[in-house]
Amino acid sequence: MRDETLEPLPKNWEMAYTDTGMIYFIDHNTKTTTWLDPRLCKK
């Protein structure tokens, strides 16, 4: 489920979907991926 109230992704981040429809996030700065939304992981 998407939460439209979240702010935009940080610079150089992208949201993508797996072949089965699961959301993951791509950090183009470090060339890594994560299941965790970077907008929710702020310190």
Rank of each mutant, 00 (worst) to 15 (best):
W13N: 01
N12G: 15
T33K: 04
R39A: 07
K11Q: 13
M22D: 15
G21D: 06
D19V: 09
P38K: 00
T34C: 02
G21E: 07
D19M: 03
R2L: 11
L40D: 13
E7C: 05
N12K: 08
K11I: 06
D19G: 10
R39D: 05
R2E: 12
D27M: 01
A16W: 02
W13M: 04
H28S: 06
T33S: 08
P10L: 02
F25G: 03
Y24M: 03
D3P: 11
Y24C: 02
I26L: 10
C41D: 14
T5K: 15
L40T: 11
Y17K: 13
T5L: 13
M15P: 10
D37C: 04
M15V: 10
M1D: 13
A16Y: 02
T32L: 08
M22W: 04
M1R: 12
T5C: 09
L6T: 14
L36W: 12
D3M: 08
N12W: 04
C41V: 15
I23G: 11
N12Q: 07
P10V: 01
E14W: 01
L6G: 14
T32V: 11
W35N: 05
T20W: 05
N12T: 04
W35C: 07
D3Q: 11
K11M: 08
T32S: 11
Y24E: 03
E14T: 08
E7I: 07
L40V: 14
W35T: 10
N29E: 13
H28K: 09
F25P: 01
E7L: 09
F25S: 02
I26G: 02
M15R: 14
L6H: 06
P8L: 08
W35Y: 15
P10F: 01
D3E: 13
N29C: 09
K42T: 13
C41Y: 14
K42D: 14
D37F: 00
M22E: 15
E14G: 07
F25E: 03
E7N: 07
T5S: 13
T5D: 13
C41M: 13
M22H: 09
T30D: 06
T20V: 08
T30V: 04
F25A: 01
Y24I: 01
Y24P: 02
W13S: 01
P8S: 05
P8K: 11
L9R: 02
T30Q: 09
N29F: 08
A16D: 06
T18N: 04
F25H: 04
M22G: 14
E14S: 09
R2F: 08
T32H: 04
N12C: 06
L6M: 11
N29D: 09
R2K: 12
L36N: 09
P38V: 00
T34W: 01
F25M: 01
K43E: 15
P38Y: 00
D3C: 08
E7G: 14
Y17A: 15
P8A: 12
H28M: 04
A16S: 07
K42C: 09
T32E: 05
C41G: 14
L36F: 11
E14R: 06
R2N: 13
T20N: 09
M15H: 08
T32R: 07
D19Q: 12
L40Q: 14
N29P: 03
E14M: 05
D3L: 08
E14V: 05
G21S: 03
G21K: 08
K43A: 14
I26S: 02
M15I: 15
G21A: 05
